[in-house]
Design a protein around this nucleic acid. Structure first.
Length: 574
RNA sequence: GGACCCGUAGCUCAGCUUGGACAGAGCGAAAGCCUUCUAAGCGUUGAAGUAAGCUUUAGGCCCAGGGUUCGAAUCCCUGCGGGUCCGCCA
């Protein structure tokens, strides 16, 4: 990394200069800070030395500044108050950073540090139920975390676990059979139609004991492979899965493995029996439970009174299935905050089971994200107060199409559609991850439809603008230039940001925070736009032009690399 | 009753893990910048943008109160406010 060699030299100088034995030199590299531009490139706060030397930090900073001689890469050392500020050779930073980027291209920012096999399980949409913006947050997070982990050298196994069976499916099918007004299923948008049937059926059934019993019977019939019901179930299930496949394309996801809840039912029942035998589980009111009160985790219900397996025991079965096929170092579940207790219970149960299960529990991690709320409150697919994915997508697409048309009256329909899609999804995806994972996200239509400010299209625009400049230039950009000409404040900031990309990627990967990349890209885009407005590129003097063209080529590359980690496309024209 | 998360500008949020140089963005508000088209004889009007941009201004007792520290938005405790979960949904 370009930045590291400069930091190394600063650390070396400091270690050499501080002679006091009481000071723990191994910590120097942690203490170095990157301050604001005008103060220097690296800073060492002298507070920590104040007690050891029994002098004020200001004095210490001054003493050290006098004592230290600049090195090869460090050109100036200056005390400002209690801080010791280091200035590195700007020309060399510029040259090594830009050269590094142009050399590595789409690999810039990547590393081989990870070396782990990580399973990332995400999306988890249920069949027979509408896909809403909560699922969108999940898939955006899951995919960008997967991409970031891959980029940092890990092997990622993307999997999805889908609820294709259970009470919600039974209710939906009950509705299809019993609620006449829906008539025959349509030929398109069938997932949405099923979801409507589900909502309607749910309303009808709720509170009516007789109907609830009917639905229960219906579910048991499905499990017992009733011929007619299974035909209906399979058919409707497939409609949903087909539409899910389309969504995976929209979000750039390629799953290695699709797990289904229906496949876990019988293994889960077996596991529950074994756990009963071992005394880990017990019967209570006709259900099978595990008492985790001694771990402050309440009661974990495995099997209902009717003998059907619940999410809990099915998740144990799922864990076993994963373990048997993959040798994993880490297993990440991207699931909402509301299931926190469930996962604590699940991991504790696996731990109690011992052996391989215990080992797997140690590698498992529940990656929590906050609920997606509407300005009106929590969504519920049962009551129908939801922003559906299909509606959201249509709305965003039509808005983006209008914006593109306004700017490009000469484009053909295909060109307009393709670009509009890229822009619409950029807005959606960035909107879904630019909030810290655990925080609730209040989904605001107006915010999502706004393509200005802190949005995906803003980043895309910076990229497109660079492409347009390079196109206007028309020639191949020279491979080298005199980087000492990049003296402007705005150029220095750009170079500095560019050099920070690898560290940003590492931080995003190790903390599972795509947000860090999103904010970085917004900062870089902003720094570029600011630079562009203040300094001409194509009209600059020949040598300066050469250097600036190389600089913006590097910016373009980093924007593209970063956007790719968020599964956002970087169009050349928009 | 118990557990977890959140509380930072009018609004939406960064910063908190690892305490340090004036608490940062975006939206909204106010003012301005460039180009093109438009109406009128140049200073002027209206509309638009690869300007989907840029600059400036206003806006904060970082929920409250204690504690730790040379130093707290950041760490600890208490309270208040909001959200979520707590045996047969997932």
């Amino acid at each position: 990394m370009a930045e590291d060699s400069f930091k190394e030299e600063v650390v070396a100088i400091l270690v050499k200069s501080i002679s006091n034995k009481e000071f723990d030199k191994s910590k120097v590299s942690e203490l170095i800070e990157v301050p604001q531009q005008e103060f220097g490139d690296y800073a060492f706060p002298c507070f920590v030395l104040a007690r050891i030397y029994k002098k004020s930090p200001q004095e210490i900073a001054n003493d050290l500044a006098d004592k230290i001689k600049p090195g090869k890469k460090v050109t100036k050392v200056q005390a400002t108050g209690p801080y010791l500020n280091f200035f590195v050779d700007k020309e060399e930073v510029a040259e090594s950073t830009v050269a590094d980027i142009l050399n590595k291209k789409e690999a810039y920012g990547s590393s081989k540090n990870g070396k782990k096999t990580v399973m990332v399980e995400f999306f988890h949409a249920n069949t027979h139920k509408a896909v809403h913006i909560g699922h969108i947050r999940n898939i955006c997070l899951g995919e960008s975390i997967s991409r970031t982990l891959e980029f940092t050298g890990n092997k990622v196994v993307r999997v999805n676990y889908q609820g294709d069976i259970g009470p919600h499916v039974a209710k939906c099918l009950w509705g299809m059979i019993n609620i006449k007004k829906f008539g025959k299923p349509p030929s398109a948008n069938r997932l949405r139609w099923l979801a409507d049937v589900y909502v309607n059926a749910n309303k009808t059934i709720e509170g009516n004991e007789k109907l609830e019993a009917e639905v229960k019977q219906l579910l048991l019939k499905i499990y017992n492979k009733d011929k007619e019901l299974n035909k209906l179930w399979n058919e409707t299930r497939q409609w949903c899965l087909d539409e899910f496949e389309e969504m995976y394309k929209d979000f750039g996801v390629k799953y290695k493995e699709l797990y289904f809840e229906s496949g876990m039912e019988f293994p889960a029942r077996d596991i529950s029996k074994q756990l009963l035998k071992k005394g880990i589980a017990k019967e209570s009111d006709g259900a099978v439970i595990i008492d985790l009160k001694s771990h402050k985790l309440g009661i974990f219900v495995l099997v209902t009174q009717d003998g059907t397996a619940l999410y809990s025991s099915k998740d144990i079965a799922l864990a076993q299935k994963k373990m048997s096929k993959y040798s994993l170092d880490k297993s990440i579940h991207v699931v909402g905050k509301e299931q926190e207790l469930h996962f604590k219970q699940l991991f504790k149960t696996l731990e109690i089971m011992g052996g391989k299960e215990k080992e797997f529990a140690g590698k498992s991690y529940h990656l929590i994200y906050g609920l997606v709320m509407l300005p009106t409150g929590k969504m519920s697919s049962r009551s129908g107060s939801v922003v559906f994915y299909d509606e959201l997508k249509d709305e965003l697409l039509s808005l983006a199409t209008a914006e593109v048309k306004k700017r490009h009256k000469d484009w053909n329909q295909k060109q307009v559609d393709e670009t509009a899609k890229k822009i619409a999804f950029a807005a959606l995806k960035l909107g879904m991850i630019y909030r810290d994972n655990e925080k609730q996200l209040v989904f605001d239509w107006e915010q999502a439809m706004n393509f200005e400010g802190e949005t995906g299209p803003y980043i895309q625009y910076a990229h497109a603008r660079i492409c347009s400049i390079l196109e206007k230039y028309g020639k191949k950009v020279a491979t080298t230039a005199d980087f000492s000409l990049l003296k402007e404040k705005e150029e220095q900031l750009l170079i500095r940001l560019l050099s920070q990309f690898p560290a940003t990627v590492e931080a995003a990967a190790s903390n599972y925070k795509p947000l860090l990349i999103a904010r970085y890209l917004l900062d870089l885009s902003q720094a570029f736009n600011n630079f562009y407005h203040q300094h001409p590129i194509l009209k600059a003097e020949e040598d300066v032009k050469k250097a600036r063209l190389l600089l913006i080529t590097a910016v373009k590359q980093v924007l593209k690399n970063g956007l790719n980690l968020l599964a956002i496309e970087a169009p050349e024209k928009m």
